[in-house]
């Protein structure tokens, strides 16, 4: 594989994603971990752009980085006193590392087997181009009765229920 600009961009975003993720998991300071989560999510947005999904990249930046990460930073600030822990990992962190490593190795074995398999090997080139109006197609598919309108509506109900529930759970008790 020659070193095209695309490969370089992929490598940069992959390294940003994985380094940020490692930082999230290992950082001693919780606030720093939240900021590194932003970095990792940005790397994933870059990978979405490389995969010709610009709408998902925009949603990733607006919703994940702008919404969830800010929510988590609020959570960090609301539980202050917990930001700088003397002990970051629990007592079974070594076992956890083994389990994570085994998970990764198993996934890699599956990927290598499928990538070299005779039946239907993983393609190295995309099967056809993405339509120029793919974002319009996605929007139509989400409200098309033959495709995703039911999951779409269920998702809206889930979101409304979750947010109302979150407000109810997190409000202060007046009784005490």
């Amino acid at each position: 594989m020659e070193l095209t600009i695309e490969v370089v961009v992929f490598a940069v975003f992959a390294i940003i994603t994985l380094a940020g993720a490692l930082g999230v998991v290992l950082a001693r300071n919780l606030f720093r971990a939240a900021l590194l989560l932003l970095v990792s999510l940005f790397g994933v947005a870059g990978l979405f752009v490389l995969l010709a999904a610009p709408f998902l990249a925009a949603v990733q930046v607006l919703l994940y980085m702008g919404g969830i990460a800010i929510l988590i930073i609020f959570g960090v600030m609301l539980t202050r006193g917990m930001v700088q822990a003397r002990q970051v990992m629990n007592s079974q962190w070594d076992l956890a590392a083994v389990i994570a490593l085994v998970t990764f190795v198993i996934l890699m074995i599956v990927i290598v087997q499928v990538a070299q398999g005779e039946g239907a090997p993983l393609p190295s080139l995309p099967r056809g181009d993405v339509a120029a109006d793919s974002i319009a197609q996605l929007g139509a598919a989400l409200v098309d009765p033959a495709q995703y309108v039911l999951p779409f509506e269920v998702a809206s109900v889930l979101l409304a229920g979750a947010l109302i529930g979150a407000v109810y759970i997190a409000r202060e008790d007046e009784a005490e």
């Binding site: 994603t17 994985l18 993720a21 490692l22 490593l101 990764f104």
Partner: peptide, 9 residues
Amino acid sequence: AALFAIGVF
């Protein structure tokens, strides 16, 4: 896969 394993850890 690597990102998932980091998350599991």
